Amino acid sequence: MSRSDRSAPSDVTGITIGTDMIRLGQFLKLGGAVDSGADVKELLADGDVTVNGEPETRRGRQLHRGDLVTFHGVTVRVD
């Protein structure tokens, strides 16, 4: 599925990034989901994060504008 084919629920918040790409761990910290890299590892190990509806365990996963990240039942769009 391409990024343009994904439709986000209307209650999704967008977080603007200043570059074309951001790594998942950085994005989770930017969005306030975690405070540190250690917290990112724990969150991902618990299986609580999905990217575009698929479970993700790699904190280095590259995210691009339009990607949807869900954690703790909250979905956030990379803007």
Rank of each mutant, 00 (worst) to 15 (best):
S2N: 09
S2W: 05
S2Y: 03
S7H: 13
S7P: 03
P9A: 07
P9S: 08
S10L: 09
S10F: 02
D11R: 01
V12R: 00
V12D: 11
T13D: 06
G14R: 11
G14D: 12
T16Y: 00
T16V: 08
I17H: 02
G18R: 00
G18H: 03
T19F: 04
D20K: 12
I22P: 08
I22Y: 01
I22E: 03
I22S: 08
L24Y: 12
L24G: 09
G25V: 05
G25D: 15
L28Y: 15
L28Q: 11
K29I: 13
G31R: 09
G31D: 11
G31Q: 08
G32H: 06
G32M: 06
G32K: 05
G32P: 10
A33T: 14
A33C: 13
A33I: 15
V34E: 05
D35W: 00
D35I: 08
S36D: 10
S36C: 14
S36K: 14
A38W: 12
V40W: 08
K41G: 02
K41Y: 13
K41M: 11
E42A: 13
L44F: 11
A45M: 12
A45F: 13
G47S: 07
D48T: 14
V49P: 02
V49M: 03
V51H: 00
V51C: 02
V51P: 02
E54C: 07
E54H: 11
E54T: 13
P55Y: 03
P55L: 10
T57K: 15
T57Q: 13
R59G: 11
R59D: 11
G60I: 10
G60L: 05
G60T: 15
R61F: 00
Q62L: 09
Q62A: 11
Q62Y: 01
Q62M: 11
L63H: 04
L63W: 05
H64S: 08
R65V: 03
R65W: 00
R65S: 03
G66P: 02
G66N: 01
G66K: 01
D67S: 08
D67T: 05
L68S: 05
T70P: 01
T70K: 07
T70F: 03
F71Q: 03
F71E: 01
F71T: 07
F71C: 10
H72R: 10
H72P: 00
G73E: 01
G73R: 00
G73I: 00
G73D: 04
V74A: 09
T75Y: 01
T75V: 05
R77I: 10
V78G: 03
V78W: 08
D79I: 01
